[in-house]
């Protein structure tokens, strides 16, 4: 990939669990003129810290600039740029798909193929739940589209670096 072309980059940002830290990170990226594709925040094993996973669609040069600017935030401890080939990335999707008594079976069949869970069933719709790499979530959405998507909620991706497969000697 050329450094000049925008591409999706996932940044895993370890931050101090301080008031305003989410506003600092989100505000900084907006202020510098970059868009956030997704942003997920959650606690870590240490209550003093949270992890933010953010996805940006930028050139490599701009990603480097974002990382440097983020590091200037006093509450930012560590940033890892997750390499898609060397990390696990997951996202959770909830989608409510329209169906009738006749088409419900087709929707459920798709769910089964994707190993999605059925989270809720109504007279005119089914809600499916799927977690996995974001691309799989996109595939499912594309396939249920023909039935009519009533609502979608996604968490935004989270990720971790892959472990070494061999112990250090």
């Amino acid at each position: 990939m050329s450094a000049m072309e925008p591409h999706l980059t996932t940044l895993s940002v370890l931050v101090e669990n301080q008031p305003g830290v989410l506003a600092r990170v989100a505000g900084l990226i907006a202020r510098r003129g970059y868009n956030i594709e997704s942003l997920a925040v959650g606690p870590t094993d240490d209550p003093g810290f949270s992890r933010m996973t953010l996805v940006v669609d930028q050139t490599q040069t701009h990603v480097e600039q974002i990382v440097k600017q983020l590091y200037k935030l006093i509450n930012v401890i560590k940033i890892i740029e997750l390499d898609p080939t060397d990390s696990i990335e997951r996202e959770l999707l909830l989608v409510r798909v329209a169906c009738t008594a006749e088409t419900r079976f087709q929707v459920l069949e798709l769910a089964e193929i994707f190993e999605a869970k059925v989270a809720d069933v109504g007279a005119e719709s089914v809600a499916l739940e799927l977690s996995g790499p974001p691309s799989r979530l996109n595939d499912l959405l594309e396939l249920v589209e023909q039935h009519g998507i009533k609502e979608v909620a996604r968490t935004g991706r989270i990720g971790l670096e892959r472990a070494r497969k061999r112990a250090a000697i």
Binding site: G20, A23, R31
Partner: peptide, 16 residues
């Protein structure tokens, strides 16, 4: 003011 000064300070505090 905590929010307003955030992008134009090196750091800011609200003391609780």
């Amino acid at each position: 003011t905590f929010n307003m000064t955030m992008p134009v300070t090196k750091h800011n505090y609200v003391v609780m």
